[in-house]
Amino acid sequence: MKTNIRFTHQELVEKSKLGDRNSQFQLYEQYVDAMYNVSMRMLCSKEDAEDTVQDSFVEAFKNLGNFRYESTFGSWLKRIVINKSINHLKLKRIPLVPIIDHEYHLTEEPIENIKDIDIEKVKRGIKQLPPGYQQIIHLYLIEGYDHEEIGEVLEISKSTSKSQYHRAKKKLLEIIKEM
C-alpha cells in the first residue's frame, strides 16, 4: 500500500519528465497551494513565497529525471520548497535556530498538556514565537518532518532539533495559555 502512495501521479510525472507541458501544468495545479502555504509559513511574505515556489517548480521540472519514486512527488517537491525557503532566510540573515544557548539543557522539563486547543490560537501563537522557534514548530508539527530530517534541513544535530522543538513547544503553549 505504502509503495502505491509513492507512485501517486506517476503518469503525470513520467509525461512531465518528457517535457509535456500539460502534464506539468496538472502537477502544478495539484500542488501549488500546498507548496505556497509551506513557503508562506516559513517566509511570512507573499512575494518571497511566490518567488520561492515558482523557482521550486522550475527546478523540480528541470530535474524531474532525478526523481526515482523514493518518496511521493509531493514530498520531493516539498523538500525543494523548504530548502529554497531556508536558503532565502539565510540570505536575509534570519536565524533558523534560536541563538539561546541550548547545548547544556540535557533534560527536558515536562510540559503541561492543554486540551481542546483552538487552532486559530495556535496559528496566532506561532506568529508570536521568535523566528527560529517558528521554523522548528512548522517543520515538526505541520510539515511532519522528524528530527533527523529537520537536522538535515537546518544543518543542526538531531539532539539540537529535539531540544529546540521542546523549548519552542513549551513557549508556544505558554503564549496560547495567556490568550
Binding site: F25, Y28, E29, V32, D33, A34, M35, Y36, N37, M40, R41, K46, A49, E50, V53, Q54, F57, V58, F61, I119, K123, I142
Partner: peptide, 15 residues
C-alpha cells in the same frame, strides 16, 4: 494551517 491561496495563473505564467 493552509490558509493562503496562490495566485495560480500569475505564478504559472512565470514558471
Amino acid at each position: 494551517f493552509d490558509e493562503h491561496k496562490a495566485d495560480r495563473s500569475k505564478m504559472w505564467a512565470k514558471i
